[in-house]
Design a protein around this nucleic acid. Structure first.
Length: 277
DNA sequence: GTCCATGTTCTTTA
DNA sequence: CTAAAGAACATGGA
C-alpha cells in the first residue's frame, strides 16, 4: 500500500503523537519481521525516548534520544497506527509499543497481513545507502545520469529503489501519464524534453498525492486510522478500459516485470510525435 | 479451484 | 563477469 505519499502521511501523523514520548513497554509478537532476527528488540528499545521520525524513500525512520535508529518498512499491507492500549488488537498485529506517560494509554502498533514489511535495526552506524535520491528533491541531470545507465523499460527503472527512492506501481504509472511517456520506452532512450517533463511530472504527481493524503486501495491508513483520497484522482492506475481524462481513448493495461501497467495509448505514444513541418 | 494485489529480494537466464 | 527477467515470499479478496 505504501509509496512515498502514503509513507510521508504516516510520518506526518505519527510525529505529533509519538515524538518526545518514551517507550515503556515493547511486545514483539513475531520474530521473523525483525532484522537482525536475533536482536532483543524489546530490551533495546525499552526506556528510550523517540526524538524524531523521518522518511527516506519508503522507510519510516525512528530516531532515538540515544542516537540509535531503526526503520519500519510497510511492505504491501503494513499499517502503523497509534491507538489506545485498551483498543482491541486487530489480527496480524506484530508489534506493540507503549508510550509514556502511562495515564495517556497510547500504543504504537505495527500490523502487516502479508508480512512483506518489517522492522530494521540500524543502531548508530549509517544505514546502507543502496537507495536512490529523493524524488521530491532530484534534479533532472541526476535522474538523467541514472536512467542512461540502463536499457530496461522506463517503468521498470523508476520502480527500482536504487534508481530513485519512493515510487511504486501507482505513482510510476501516474507520473508517466503526466509526462506523456510510454511505459515501455527504454530508460536510456528518454529524450531531453521527455526527461524534463518526467522530472516535473514525478514531483507534481507526488505533491498532489500528498495534498490528498495518499491513495487507499485497500489497507492504507495513516497513523490516526484515516484513509487517503488520492485514489479518486488516479488518471490511469487501475483504470484499464476506462476513458482517458484527456482524450477519451480507453486506458490500456499490460504486464511489465510482473506488475500491471496502465497508460493511455494516445497520450503516451511509443515515439514522440514529431512536429509537422 | 484461479487470478490478482500499493514491495523487495533471491535465483535463473542471457 | 553483469544485467535483466522471473520466481518467491504470505495472505486474503474477487
Amino acid at each position: 500500500m505504501p509509496e512515498l505519499p502514503e509513507v510521508q502521511t504516516v510520518v506526518t501523523t505519527l510525529i505529533p503523537t509519538v515524538v518526545g514520548r518514551r517507550v515503556t513497554r515493547v511486545q514483539l509478537r513475531r520474530r521473523d519481521i525483525l532484522t537482525p532476527p536475533h536482536l532483543d528488540f524489546a530490551a533495546t528499545l525499552r526506556n528510550r525516548k523517540v526524538s524524531d521520525i523521518t522518511r527516506r524513500g519508503k522507510r519510516i525512520i525512528f530516531l532515538l534520544e540515544s542516537a540509535e535508529r531503526f526503520f519500519i518498512h510497510l511492505g504491501m499491507t503494513g499499517r502503523l497506527t497509534v491507538e489506545r492500549t485498551d483498543a482491541p488488537i486487530q489480527p496480524h498485529t506484530h508489534l506493540l509499543i507503549d508510550l509514556s506517560p502511562a495515564r495517556e494509554k497510547l500504543q504504537l502498533r505495527f500490523r502487516d497481513q502479508r508480512r512483506f514489511g518489517g522492522i530494521f535495526w540500524i543502531g548508530r552506524g549509517r544505514a546502507d545507502e543502496n537507495i536512490g535520491p529523493e524524488p521530491l528533491l532530484i534534479r533532472p541531470s541526476q535522474l538523467s545520469r541514472r536512467l542512461l545507465k540502463t536499457t530496461r523499460a522506463i517503468k521498470t527503472a523508476l520502480l527500482d529503489q536504487t534508481v530513485i527512492a519512493g515510487l511504486g506501481n501507482i505513482y510510476v504509472d501516474e507520473a508517466l501519464f503526466a509526462a506523456r511517456i510510454h511505459p515501455l520506452t527504454r530508460a536510456c532512450d528518454i529524450t531531453p524534453s521527455q526527461l524534463s517533463r518526467l522530472c516535473r511530472a514525478i514531483k507534481l504527481t507526488l505533491r498532489r498525492a500528498l495534498r490528498h493524503r495518499g491513495s487507499t486501495l485497500r489497507d492504507y491508513v495513516d497513523a490516526n486510522g484515516s484513509t487517503g483520497r488520492f485514489q479518486n484522482l488516479h488518471r490511469v492506475y487501475d483504470r484499464a478500459a476506462h476513458p482517458c481524462h484527456t482524450c477519451k481513448t480507453p486506458i490500456a493495461r499490460l504486464v511489465l516485470g510482473g506488475r500491471s501497467t496502465h497508460f493511455c495509448p494516445r497520450c503516451q505514444p511509443r515515439r514522440q510525435s514529431r512536429r509537422i513541418l
